[in-house]
């Protein structure tokens, strides 16, 4: 059985977000309206080498995290799936095969560079017939209520300025019974792993980013943004606050990453 947890307790929306009109950009505090352009700068910079860096940084394990996400998505032929922050399209490729000719996948990303890399990759792999591409903001999704059977956001939520607003937007466009899956870096379960992970994130990652992508700052932001992201239980509480029921999470690789699942009732 996977290491997974669920609960249904009262909570407050203690997301760790500042309440003075600012928000986190890594360890920095910036005005809320500035965060999106700063994050955009990071992803414009890394888009071309995103897949290579993902493989390098995680030792290829990100493919296993995404594979598990696809399994938990339980997508069936004919369904409609929205892959938010879909980036270079790893999840969309898998969903395209599963929904088949009768289904539909929308690969959405706020960043034009990432979306272009993803679209080229899917076209190169012949994944074209049932996938659409959309540049959009997760906080204000341009779809009618009750539109999708499944929504995923993989390694994207921590970059969103107002996470509560994004979760509410996703809840609105899910069909009743539809599921949201949030795959995101989280808090390691053991202190030893946490210390090793910190050393790796703050010492090795920026150097790797400098060597491969010629961009140490973006990978320093990556490490910092992971630390500032809500931990497993806090994100679970945020999803419940947004209206999702049956919320649970699965710790992957000792909690370095967690997959959260919520159902729209």
């Amino acid at each position: 059985m996977p290491d997974h947890n669920s609960r249904s307790t009262d909570h407050s929306s203690a997301t760790g977000e500042p309440q003075d009109g600012t928000t986190h950009f890594g360890f920095q505090r910036v005005k809320k309206e500035e965060k999106a352009s700063k994050v955009a700068g990071v992803f414009h910079s890394v888009a071309a080498r995103y897949d290579v860096m993902n493989d390098l940084m995680s030792g290829g394990i990100h493919r296993l995290w995404k594979r598990f996400t696809v399994e938990v998505a339980a997508v069936r032929p004919g369904q409609k799936v929205l892959d938010i922050a879909g980036g270079t399209g790893d999840l969309s490729i898998a969903f395209s095969r599963l929904v088949g000719a009768e289904g539909q996948v929308v690969l959405a990303d706020i960043n034009e560079s990432m979306l272009r890399v993803g679209r080229d990759k899917l076209i190169d792999q012949g994944v074209v017939s049932n996938v659409q591409f959309l540049q959009t903001d997760a906080q204000a999704l341009p779809f009618a209520d009750n539109s999708f059977d499944c929504i995923t956001i993989a390694f994207g939520l921590r970059n969103v300025t107002d996470k509560d607003r994004a979760l509410a937007s996703m809840h609105r466009i899910l069909k009743p019974g539809g599921r949201l899956l949030v795959l995101e870096f989280s808090k390691p379960r053991s202190n030893l792993l946490s210390r090793l992970y910190d050393t790796y994130s703050f010492s090795v990652l920026p150097r790797m980013g400098q060597l491969v992508a010629n961009d140490a700052d973006s990978y320093r932001y990556l490490a910092e943004s992971i630390r500032m992201h809500p931990d497993q239980d806090t994100l679970l509480a945020m999803m419940e606050e947004a209206g999702f029921s049956g919320c649970e999470y699965f710790n992957l690789t000792g909690g370095i990453v967690a997959l959260h699942k919520g159902i729209k009732s």
């Binding site: 059985m1 996977p2 394990i61 493919r63 296993l64 598990f68 399994e71 997959l259």
Partner: peptide, 13 residues
């Protein structure tokens, strides 16, 4: 409890 990452690796292989 087994980590889903390991199970995913076995399934992929």
């Amino acid at each position: 409890m087994a980590d889903p990452t390991l199970l995913s690796a076995a399934c992929a292989a």
